[in-house]
Amino acid sequence: MTDAVSIRSGRLKVADGNELYVESVGDPSGPAVLWLHGGPGSGAGTAYRKRIDPDRQHAIAFDQRGCGRSTPLVTDRLDLLDSNTTSAQIDDIEAVREHFGIERWMVTGASWGATLALAYAQAHPERVTAIALLAVTTTSRAEVEWITESMGRVFPEEWDRFAAAVARDPGERIVDAYARALRAPDPAVRAAAAAAWGRWEDTHVSLGPGWASDPRWYDPLTRDVLATLVTHYWSNSGFGGDDIIKRMPRLGGIPGVLVHGRRDISGPAVVAYRLHQAWPGSSLVITDDGHGGPDGWAAMRRAIADFAV
């Protein structure tokens, strides 16, 4: 593997006034590998570059609309939030594919990126050669209920603090109250909600081996973008998350690897297991990690190496 990786970056205008930051690394003539980041709202970062062989593979990544190096940030244009949906992001992925002149590619992602990868592959199976996913989620209503409500049985003290930190209407779900607060006209209300949401996010992933607090929740700008997008998507069950398991037959004939940590309490392994059962030709890898971890990422690197040939 070459030590110096050539990085090609640029900007791509898409719908609704958004401009995506896009980049690629590796051999442009090699098998294409798309990386979809988590969050929603975390940005693509740089770690994905280490998961391919740049001498023979071509990795593509972008910051999803509203976050990272893409513009405008969701916190600067809350009026664009309603157009930030899974369907819109699928269109963005297709725009990225066409931008790079790629006919078919392997699709990879982690956490929310796994949900988006599955939704994209189900919408455009003819464009997908293989799929590799880590910390598998579908962002279904049941998953959102577990992570925002039922998880209080595991972390009762922290959950009470989390639930009390936002004003709720009678019968309103916690996730809906946070989504509403993060669209409030008062910046102080949004900042307080984002901080409380970040504390809860840091809590429910804390049982994995080697866990360390996520510094993103301590940077106000990053935290506010993340909390706004996460609550928006979770409040809407990922804009179709409940349908992903029903649409798994669309992936028949596409090979895939689902990698999940046994200790990922915020995203129970049963989600990956049920997807595997509904997806002939898929492989399920259960590690001892939490929500991501060294064993999981090692399994992802192996899957990418095996598929992207």
Rank of each mutant, 00 (worst) to 15 (best):
Y120I: 08
T222Q: 13
I147D: 01
D169G: 13
A192H: 01
W200F: 04
A114K: 02
S206F: 01
T138Y: 02
E172S: 12
R168C: 13
Y120D: 09
L207D: 07
T222S: 12
Y218F: 12
W211H: 15
A193Y: 05
G113H: 10
D176W: 03
Y218A: 08
L182H: 08
D214N: 13
D169A: 15
P156W: 02
A212M: 05
I147R: 12
T129W: 00
E149D: 13
V144N: 13
W159V: 03
F162E: 03
E126P: 01
L207C: 06
D160H: 11
A179R: 14
H204L: 14
R190H: 03
L226G: 06
G171H: 11
D160L: 11
G210A: 08
M106I: 15
V154W: 00
H124T: 05
A191N: 05
G101N: 07
V136P: 10
H204M: 10
P215I: 04
R180A: 14
P215L: 01
A177P: 11
D224Q: 13
W146F: 14
R104S: 13
A130K: 11
A132Y: 13
D224C: 00
L182N: 06
A194P: 00
D202E: 09
M151H: 00
G171W: 03
R161V: 07
L182W: 05
A179E: 11
Y178W: 04
E126W: 01
L182M: 12
R190D: 07
E103S: 15
E103M: 02
A188D: 14
W211Y: 15
D202K: 04
A163E: 13
R153F: 04
L133F: 11
A130F: 09
R153A: 08
A184P: 02
R127F: 08
E201W: 03
E145T: 13
A181H: 10
M151L: 13
W211I: 02
A193G: 07
R127I: 02
G101Y: 10
E126N: 09
L134W: 03
Q122Y: 00
R161K: 09
D219I: 00
W112K: 09
P125V: 01
R183T: 14
A164Y: 04
A119F: 02
A212L: 03
V136T: 13
S213G: 03
T137K: 07
P220N: 05
V225H: 08
V144W: 07
V175I: 15
